[in-house]
Design a protein around this nucleic acid. Sequence first.
DNA 1: TCATCCAATGGAAACGTTTCCACCACATAG
DNA 2: CTATGTGGTGGAAACGTTTCCATTGGATGA
Lengths: 365, 365
Amino acid sequence: MSKSSSITIKDVAQSAGCGVATASRVLNNSGPASADVRERVERAARELGFSFSSIGRALQSRRSMTVGCLVPSLANPVFAEAVQGVQAELLGSGYQMLISCSNYDGAADEAAIEMLLSKETDALVATMVAPDRSPTLRLAQKRGIPILLMFHDPLDGFITSYVDNFDAAKVVARQFADLGHRRTAFLALRFTTSDRSRNRYAGFHSECRARGLPDPALIEIGEAEANQPDRLAAILAQHPKLTAIFASNDFLAIAVQKAARLLGWRVPQDLSVVGFDGIEVGRLLEKPLATIETSPEAMGRQAARSLLNLLQGGPSIQPPALPFAFRAGATLALPNPEKGDDGRGATQPPSDLPAEPQAQTRMNR
Amino acid sequence: MSKSSSITIKDVAQSAGCGVATASRVLNNSGPASADVRERVERAARELGFSFSSIGRALQSRRSMTVGCLVPSLANPVFAEAVQGVQAELLGSGYQMLISCSNYDGAADEAAIEMLLSKETDALVATMVAPDRSPTLRLAQKRGIPILLMFHDPLDGFITSYVDNFDAAKVVARQFADLGHRRTAFLALRFTTSDRSRNRYAGFHSECRARGLPDPALIEIGEAEANQPDRLAAILAQHPKLTAIFASNDFLAIAVQKAARLLGWRVPQDLSVVGFDGIEVGRLLEKPLATIETSPEAMGRQAARSLLNLLQGGPSIQPPALPFAFRAGATLALPNPEKGDDGRGATQPPSDLPAEPQAQTRMNR
DNA sequence: TCATCCAATGGAAACGTTTCCACCACATAG
DNA sequence: CTATGTGGTGGAAACGTTTCCATTGGATGA
């Protein structure tokens, strides 16, 4: 039955005929012990099937050997892969990962962090709705718990593992501009819940300006529109002059193509589409998706490495932004000259654009 | 600094001028206490910012309030969503989730379970390479730890949350048969590492037999082939008479289309393709993917519910298989009559086909 | 030969809880 | 007025570790 669950070091010591202190020293290799007793203890432990209680250990050492991980959702492969990266990097370290999802809800973020803290995780790695405005995260920081953010651009007082969204978006703008696109748009989902999306728009916008092009339109949609091609099509139809769309992520880019098809617009002849993230499936599509390729897994790994470093008392240094690359695809082409360009700028003004994102965001790469 | 981390119930008791026992009773509402002392304790706790140490609690109560979760990979959205479901269902219960990935490696499975056990998780939810052959899992079972499998078909002594792969595959076979397809194939990745895949093939095969059709070909490929369309195309080219392919999962189905395109085969005119899982992106493709739609999230939720039930001492009952549905798409059509059907059966014999899967697998729905 | 040192060892405290038990005061029933 | 509860309380044990400290015995150096 379950009698084996209650084998403690005391049992081992007794069976080996020594004190618990000695048994502990032998089993941990943490002090002197004669070959004789060492042998006896090891045999006893083996025969009894002893294994340490990490709870007892945690209590005594005040280290739970656990790191808490908070992401918006695992249904989004980008986050799932990042978590996988964290997990992989943590593997041999003895640390385990406690996971939590917020479903893109700021209040859930707070609750989750609180929960993780109450579980006494030794460290935190998180992607949140608004880490800069999270009292609970600040609390954790005050307690001296190592914290690593993922995906977020550098933020005062926190280390983060990220790709430079601003820079990457500029690359997309450049691609559009080089091909001669003037009427462009940025399409985002849940704009307010993602600083990443915001920074991408900022970079895109900034580069268009720098090139003397009309401001890109900003199209924000809800989840409902993203999942129902006809509704998305209706929204696109309000921007008939558009020749190129930069979608805030690859799924959105795929949805755009679906919607465009409903409108009878050909991709890329009538509309160029570029995504963001570089998810694997984009490669396999009939028209491989042009996108910014990133590696969420590498991001998770870097975050975990930094975390382990902090946990070993290492210095708190912000690593450089992770690399990204523009991936060419079949969804990007020259603009269709038939879509008359009357020179008018995009109609919709930016809603919540950070003036000119902080300089360090773009420097450390 | 980090002085707030060391506030224990002893501090609260002292500050409130009472014994720890009393403080504990007040804070837990677990015993009598005068209104007076109750007030004092609560105020003290509030002012000191006290919060329970779940480690101390775990030690005393011998419950870590933690469930371990093991899946092959989070990079596969099917598993990621299942984990998300588990997480969501666990949310209000006070249980936290410790996560681990095996990367489809049986040895890693063992190591992971061992790790989770050593962390003294109160329960386990797992998808493994071979749960029926895992000594560590048996050990956990012996210790009386509640265990729930996900995705696996019912297995002696374990409860599982699953969809009936055998039945679902029969539905696909029926779709093919009804349209008049005779030369079909089942395409699987890593056949040996997935009992799910095996059962799908078995169901597909069985239904073809039942209809008096030629045995379907079994095409097993490695990850390399799956990700490189030209290599997959080369493999497909060896089966020129095929009119329909049942891919073991949706990504594979998408890859098949890519490969078919390289060969100049039109989908669905020259080749019908059906997938499995029903991932969201399949809907958004230019040709929406015909597939078996399942809900990994519901699976995770069901598993978590069953687990919570077990943890509360509930009886160990196997819930019925989760529903699935055939999702029509644009990748399935009548066979092309030009692809001559000479009546010869498929060449490649089944490699490791379970004779006729256990009856209960198909019954409880 | 004696003083010193060191490896080997075990007892006990500490970590933060919960809970058993004993105690006290007070009220109520006889 | 005495027995019998009962609500309120705190001391102490227990959970499984690790680690500090004291004790032992034997070896080494003078």
